[in-house]
Design a protein around this nucleic acid. Sequence first.
DNA 1: GTCTTATGTGTTATGATATAACATATAACA
DNA 2: TGTTATATGTTATATCATAACACATAAGAC
Lengths: 137, 137
Amino acid sequence: MMSASRPLSSTQARVLELLSSAAKPLSAYDLLGMLREEGVNAPPTVYRALERLMRDGLAHRIESLNAFVACNRPHHSELASFAICDHCGVVTEFTDHDLQMRLSAVSGRSGFHATRMTVEIHGHCAKCADHAHGHAH
Amino acid sequence: MMSASRPLSSTQARVLELLSSAAKPLSAYDLLGMLREEGVNAPPTVYRALERLMRDGLAHRIESLNAFVACNRPHHSELASFAICDHCGVVTEFTDHDLQMRLSAVSGRSGFHATRMTVEIHGHCAKCADHAHGHAH
DNA sequence: GTCTTATGTGTTATGATATAACATATAACA
DNA sequence: TGTTATATGTTATATCATAACACATAAGAC
């Protein structure tokens, strides 16, 4: 059922490490900046590593930020959804089965066949909501 | 309740027309290309018009495509969700109240306060699903 | 009327994100 | 050993988006 796949290359593993240890999503160019000391000099290398990680369900792209995060439930294939704090930048991944069902059902009504879903919620996390009443920072 | 706002400028109206009559989402540069004949020469003008239209709920940005569509329910403020056919490119906007409730509830559990939600479903529309069994085109 | 404010546009330049195309290298395996 | 799949290097370029500043105009305050 689960297709075998090669182990990660060192670049791929490095990118995953960087994403995992970051407090916030990183852009491909953030990653490139961090990898230059290690001999990676060009965007394609980074994008290819990200592609691999995403294919394996080890990382996600946040579409509304053009940035990437490590998956917090590696190898689970549920719909990943994201709560993005526009104040502190922290992104929280969550999964909700009912939500996924409802999304499939609603879109499928018209005969649409879903292959990929993006759910991104912007706002303020609990911590930031306290001191962010209306003003944007 | 509904804040008054100026009428659209001619550029803004033109951008909205172009989006409305397009079969698919248009990028800012697609729009710019169409507007060059009409004297619009630079990206900022287009982005500004789009910004205004989005602020007024007359257009939406599709994050996963970096492109824009006219809103099909202007001035309604519900969560807009999108089904995007990766075969023919057609984007269908839909609204589902329960979905919105569930999203708010799930993200709000942890004290998160949502201000904006992005829901984009990629796949194949009914028409394309017929002749797209596995192959991507 | 004219001052002020908010809004929109023009213009130039640049920043930020992403991929095309082709060459080279290496591991797995028939 | 040849073949295939995968990863990387390298150069160049495509695509998407905004900064900064100047100028124009409409609406309301006075």
